[in-house]
């Protein structure tokens, strides 16, 4: 199985120093547990992606592109040549103005499926498949059998990365390739000054008095379910109150 780990030039979230994003080091650990893996980075320099060598990556392919260039075409061009079975990547960018969409763009251009948020990847029973354990919100997990080739992004809940080792980094190889010619330049993002917009309170009813709308808005945030009656008749209100008291057990259930 040919495995490639996409590595990016991240920034430390606090210090802003160039570092290899932690989640990519985690992806590397998953890849190395599966078999032999190579790293792939497109950027002006191999550093800080070359830090992956210290985390156990034996071989990094660095595709040299200008700083302002879009890395996706360069990655796609070299990956098309290499035909990997499995591409692992981090789940989001950590490099300043990165969009975090590179794995998706690569998968789309290569026509590969993308499975997001893996915390474990193992070989499947059938040849040409892997089993991906996917992290879902609120701690839920899902096990997927994925047919290769595929792109899998890795979630921060995956096992901690291997520790960086200076001696191991010295032994790793960085192979620098020139980007294929004629790559398009990155689309420049349009920059505009920030403009404040009014906040919409979606849960608040548009009618009723100010205090009613406030109560409705607050009730909606505290209980999660808005149960607001605006201008009910006394009978309706009484029935609603009785039903609520029965529901929370203050009054005995209605004799049927």
């Amino acid at each position: 199985m040919k495995i490639v780990v996409l590595l990016s030039a991240g920034l430390h979230p606090v210090s802003g120093q160039s570092i290899l994003p932690k989640v990519e080091a985690q992806a590397l650990r998953l890849a190395l547990a599966l078999g032999e893996a190579r790293g792939r980075h497109a950027g002006p320099t191999a550093f800080p992606a070359s830090d992956a060598l210290g985390h156990g990556l034996p071989h990094l392919v660095h595709v040299e592109i200008p700083a302002e260039a879009d890395p996706v075409p360069a990655l796609v061009a070299t990956l098309e040549a290499d035909q990997p079975d499995l591409i692992l990547a981090g789940r989001r960018g950590q490099g300043g103005d990165e969009t975090g969409l590179a794995p998706y763009a690569v998968a789309s251009r290569l026509g590969m499926a993308l499975v997001s948020d893996a915390i474990a990847v193992e070989r499947g029973e059938a040849d040409g498949t892997v089993i991906v354990h996917q992290a879902l919100p609120k701690g839920a997990r899902r096990r997927l059998v994925v047919r290769l080739p595929a792109v899998v992004t890795v979630h921060p809940d995956a096992p901690a990365p291997r520790a960086f080792a200076y001696g191991v980094a010295r032994r790793g190889i960085v192979e620098t390739r020139l980007a294929p010619p004629g790559l398009p330049a990155a689309e420049r993002l349009e920059e505009r000054p920030y403009r404040r917009r009014p906040k919409l309170m979606r849960s608040a009813p548009a009618c009723g008095s100010a205090s009613e709308r406030l109560a409705a808005a607050m009730g909606a945030t505290s209980s999660g379910v808005a149960n607001v009656m605006v201008n009910p008749t006394p009978e309706e209100a009484a029935r609603a109150i009785l039903a609520h008291l029965r529901a929370i057990g203050v009054l005995p259930p209605k004799a049927a």
């Binding site: 156990g56 901690a160 990365p161 291997r162 960086f164």
Partner: peptide, 23 residues
């Protein structure tokens, strides 16, 4: 630590932060 990459498990994080954040 430097040849095998096997510092104590819980020390890996502080060592990584020393490299990345100087702290």
């Amino acid at each position: 630590t430097m040849e095998l990459g096997l510092p104590p498990e819980k020390a890996a994080e502080p060592l990584a932060e020393l490299r990345g954040a100087g702290e």
